[in-house]
Nucleic acid binder design. Structure first.
Lengths: 251, 251
DNA sequence: CGTACTCTTGACCATATTCAAGAGACGTGG
DNA sequence: CCACGTCTCTTGAATATGGTCAAGAGTACG
């Protein structure tokens, strides 16, 4: 019987980082690359469904998503859950825990994920030595804020159909921007319960709403995932113009 | 006939900044203070009701709120409005415009406000020369994100009464943390329309919900503002434990 | 082959929206 | 000083949107 491989490994040197090689992110200078390489502690392989960060705890680590995807969420005491946003390759997670004393949200893997692990207590050193990297972290935080603003507008003021259309279009665009799913394929795995908890709707009503989008041939929902049939129709239903596109950094 | 005073003035040197003197924020080093003083372009006095930043535009400035308060919001094409968060003394606004090419939300003054104006294109210089200040900006961004997370949970998953209780308790705590309103006095001006647009509810239903909180002697709503009668009851209704309290920086 | 998970649908109910109307406070101009 | 418009709050009634309950179908997996 084989022993299963360790969850945390150190396989990939930063200069062979698949994110850097992908061309979706800004290039590092050699010095930055060397520093990030020393800043990195290892890699974390998370199975689908596992919890990466837990609300109320204090994690000594920061992470950058290398592959796979997951979601951030909060819950009320009685179990009601709200998904706040999704984390995709290139996203930096755990910053809140560096700045506040404990995490105020949880993060869970949707698919199997590989994350790059950094030491939180060396974060300030990064700001001191490589201000451009510090600025990049601010950039990522401001972008996260911008996405949350749009989600809040959506949950607060859009109807069920508008919200659902917005969410699916949003995920499609985000996934496309980092080539998380090959163009034109299913965005998965994602259950209708996840969609419901993102939209602030019940599971039943979410199902009925998605069926209507299906009927309009805007999407095709299939087992734990969906395919976009007509992105323009979705955007038009949502009254959403799409993600601002700008060259983006990562850490 | 007198000419009205200019909207933008340069009166207060940073070492006499009322925020610094208030003791609610971390102290600057002398060098930081000198730099911030050169980074500052002037002051902006905004009348209640005026727009400070407008969605879709590109402002060359960043602001720190010196006094008064306002709110950030987004609107849909047909006019539906969602208030995203409130800006209080010490808050830094306009960062999104520095990072994305244009603003994706608007900011409006609730009361008369005084804002400290910074040049956006010198922001990176701040990161280079004073990494600690850069880190502080990240701190502020992460804190904003944390507030938005809680708002999203609220709008997505709390009932009308829970949401309203959360919002009023939240505003009370935030105002208290920077002594925006003397303890025990009215939090104002704020109309029920503002509350409705924050909670994602209609004006009528917001009114009925606030009346119930009134009847429970948790709050006292009076013309364009409210007074907290029982903060603990509000927090308990909302299932909210309050703001994390930590020594906070500002720029 | 049974159990768990996801999706689906119908019926009924709760919550929140819309429409409508009016009261009270305030400021402005005749 | 009064008339008028505006703004905010308030309330009731009718309606719509979404939630809850319940049950069943299809699939995957041990």
């Amino acid at each position: 019987m084989d022993t299963s491989p360790p969850k945390s490994t150190r396989n990939i040197p930063c200069d062979e980082c698949p994110l850097l090689c992908s061309g979706h992110f800004r290039a590092f200078s050699e010095a930055e690359l060397r520093f990030v390489n020393t800043f990195k502690r290892g890699e974390l392989a998370s199975d689908a469904g596992s919890t990466i960060l837990l609300e109320g705890t204090h994690s000594p680590h920061l992470y950058t998503v290398i592959s796979g995807w997951g979601f951030r969420y909060k819950t009320l005491e009685d179990g009601r859950r709200q998904i706040l946003n999704y984390v995709l390759p290139g996203d930096f997670i755990g910053l809140q825990g560096s700045v506040l004393s404990e995490m105020h949200h949880s993060v869970e893997a949707l698919s199997d994920m590989i994350l790059c692990v950094f030491e939180r207590n060396r974060l300030f050193e990064l700001y001191e030595k490589y201000p451009e990297l510090g600025f990049d972290i601010t950039w990522l935080a401001a972008r996260e804020e911008q996405m949350l603003d749009e989600h809040l507008l959506s949950v607060g003021r859009r109807s069920a159909a508008e919200r659902a259309a917005y969410l699916l279009a949003f995920l499609y665009e985000r996934a496309g921007a980092v080539a998380l799913f090959p163009r034109g394929t299913r965005i998965a795995p994602l259950t209708q319960q996840h969609v419901a908890d993102t939209l602030g709707l019940s599971l039943v009503h979410t199902n009925k709403t998605l069926r209507k989008l299906n009927a309009q041939k805007a999407i095709d929902w299939l087992d734990s995932g969906f395919e976009i049939k007509d992105i323009e129709v979705l955007k038009q239903i949502a009254g959403w113009t799409g993600l601002p596109d700008i060259a983006r950094p990562f850490i």
